[in-house]
Design a protein around this nucleic acid. Structure first.
Length: 595
RNA sequence: GGGGCGGUAGCUCAGCCGGUCAGAGCAGCGGACUCAUAAUCCGCCGGUCGUGGGUUCAAGUCCCACCCGCCCUACCA
């Protein structure tokens, strides 16, 4: 097998509240399916992420709840980490942006860019709140539109006439946070010189032709058309300090949250290496021409991952128009692939926490199984276009596909064999039909694997399920229950069926790790088949502690057919999935807001 | 305002470079079977592929316009 180093960089969930199933359908589940497959295929995967905890929205939410930003971040960091663990997402490290390590790495990247001349200061006009002295971002200001007279216009745009606005032009501008009138003052910020990377970014992106999903590539290339310098600092006290003399100790200037958040991929890799006992190990994924970096996110993040983050890396490496030299970490690799998902909607509407058009991961998992949600997202999620989540569709998928097709295949095969033989029977004198099914299931490994390798999860899971359907058809045709007078033939049929169940279990492991582990055990497997993540409490330098997600994924799962052994004892099967009562559809719909 | 994505059977969705591309699953209808969480298997029904033009021997599949849904973005002045 290939033994390639693969970095799975998963978008960082924002810690201003719990995450809903739309969020995890965009970054969480796809990235985990991908990582589990890559590990099974023999590659060395490093899957990292964490909570994104800086920025104005966190501060605003904290003010609303009467907490400090840090307290709010602590709360939701823990909630999110627990939810992602419950979903079975196999992070090597899920950390957070408020660690000392992250601050240090983010500042190092800033300094590298600064020294190479890709960051410059600039004075602009900004709105601040007189009572708190905090800056108000444009979208937190509203007033009357100077163009159409609409009185609910936001500082950045009028929702009524669609025109772009400058908050300073609004008539009667007020803060959306507390209603007071903002004042406009000069403020100095640092800008990232994105135009200096236009050329090299174009070359980089052109090289991805045929590799990335076309919509992502087209979008990214298009951005280069009018690329502009972008502010990477904010007037805020909650964030990473700016590591320059005269700025470092200022309480009112911080790095822009997006600037520090994308650096998390690197800082988390470094933190993982330190915790693994080999502090230099991260370099295998970041400074290795044979390594590949896959970034998973929702479509709203493409600009940050396909343009800004590559530009930051290029600048740090000294590879932009102004050249320069690599910083102290050394030259860093750019993303190999940016895998963007579209958006999930909820019963035909946008997810909206305030309108209660939402189902949080936690609430979902209190009532339903993680594998069941993972399956829905894999087979019906927003992979290449927006898709709609409906409870009735979820019920149908769960009951019709997981329970009736796959769960039932496992159940009928094992219980028949357990009842009649008490063990895996011998296979003798295989017929053409037997061989056809066995060949077919074995051939699914390269086919399904190819789809997984290019992040086509919907195709992959559909193809894996074809094996399940073929196996059910095989049993219907062979009718092993009718030939009790010929135990040899009956045993052969059941042996074939169990072999294909075992193959299908392997093929479905990236999607359904928990239930696949059950099948593994039922068929006599020992040890851990597919490793599951766990929360660990770790200490920060200086005393405080925080939860991380990590896990031991050196498990037995391999992406290959394995012959099952005749004679292995079989017990009556346990049920893999829970059949849902149709009435849950109305119950869940009743929980949604009307709006 | 600019850019992007999508609009395919009742439902959820596949359809890459134009020519078995008109598909899958579910639902519905009719059969078979009983090992299995009344699960499974077979068959049938079902779409002028958002609208209107155009290119082509040939267009969901390319071009133009329009309608609808969604996403991103707006420096400086």
């Amino acid at each position: 097998m290939s033994q390639q180093h693969i970095l799975t960089a998963v978008a960082w969930p924002y810690a201003n509240g719990p995450r809903h199933i739309g969020h995890v359908s965009g970054f969480g589940v796809p990235s985990d399916i991908f990582s589990r497959y890559q590990r099974m295929a023999g590659n060395k995967v490093l899957m990292v992420s964490g909570t994104d905890e800086h920025g104005t929205p966190i501060q605003v939410q904290a003010d609303k709840e009467g907490l400090t930003a840090r307290e709010l971040a602590d709360r939701y960091n823990r909630v999110i980490a627990e939810d992602l663990t419950a979903l079975g997402l196999s992070y090597d490290l899920f950390t957070r942006t408020t660690t000392l390590n992250h601050y240090a790495v983010a500042q190092e990247i800033f300094l590298g860019l600064y020294k190479n001349g890709y960051i410059f200061p600039k004075t602009t006009m900004g709105a601040i709140s007189p009572s708190t002295a905090r800056t108000l971002p444009d979208r937190y200001i509203e007033g009357t539109c100077p163009i159409c007279g609409y009185d609910g216009a936001r500082g950045d745009q009028c929702d009524n006439c669609g025109n772009q606005l400058d908050p300073i032009d609004l008539i009667n501008p007020v803060s959306r946070i507390n209603g007071e009138t903002p004042i406009f003052v000069e403020t100095e910020h640092f800008m990232l010189d994105l135009p200096a990377f236009a050329e090299v970014l174009a070359t980089y992106l052109q090289g991805k032709q045929g590799d990335w999903r076309p919509n992502v590539l087209k979008f990214a290339l298009n951005l280069l058309g009018d690329i502009q310098p972008r502010a990477i600092s904010r007037d805020l006290d909650w964030g990473v300090p700016i590591p320059l003399d005269g700025w470092r100790d200022r309480g009112d200037k911080r790095l822009y949250v997006w600037f520090d958040a994308v650096i998390g991929y690197l800082s988390a890799s470094i933190e993982w290496a330190r915790r693994s006992g080999d502090p230099e190990a991260w370099r295998n994924w970041w400074q290795n021409p044979d390594a590949r970096g896959y970034y998973f996110m929702g479509k709203d993040n493409i600009v940050f991952h396909a343009e800004i983050w590559p530009a930051m890396l290029l600048g740090y490496n000294g590879q932009g128009a102004k050249n320069g030299t690599a910083g102290s970490l050394g030259r860093l690799d750019l993303p190999s692939e940016v895998v963007s998902s579209e958006f999930l909607t909820m019963e035909g509407r946008k997810f909206s926490s305030s309108r209660q058009v939402v189902i949080y991961v936690r609430d979902f998992l209190e009532r339903y199984d993680a594998d069941s949600l993972r399956y829905y997202i894999a087979v019906a999620g927003p992979e290449t276009q927006d898709t709609d989540f409906t409870w009735s569709e979820y019920l149908n998928r769960n009951n019709g596909e997981l329970v009736a097709a796959w769960g039932n295949l496992v159940n009928r095969s094992i219980s028949m064999a357990a009842k009649n033989f008490g063990r895996v029977p011998e296979a003798r004198d295989l017929t053409d039909a037997d061989r056809a099914l066995l060949d077919r299931s074995r051939a699914a490994f390269p086919a399904v694997g190819a789809e997984l390798g290019r992040s086509r999860f919907k195709n992959a899971v559909t193809e894996a399920f074809e094996v399940v359907r073929d196996a059910n058809r095989y049993l219907a045709e062979q009718e092993p229950w009718k030939i009790k007078d010929d135990p040899e033939r009956q045993g052969s049929i059941l042996h074939v069926a169990l072999q294909v169940v075992d193959d299908a279990k392997t093929l479905l492991t990236p999607f359904l790790p928990q239930s696949s582990n059950k099948v593994y055990t039922m068929l006599g497997g020992e040890g851990v088949w597919s490793g599951m993540p766990e929360i660990q409490e770790v200490d920060e330098e200086g005393g405080s502690s925080y939860p991380i997600i990590t896990g031991d994924y050196r498990d037995n799962a391999r992406w290959e057919h394995r012959p099952i052994k005749a004679g292995i004892p079989l017990a009556p099967p346990v049920r893999l999935f829970t059949k849902l009562d149709p009435k849950i559809v109305d119950e869940e719909l009743a929980r949604l807001g009307d709006a």
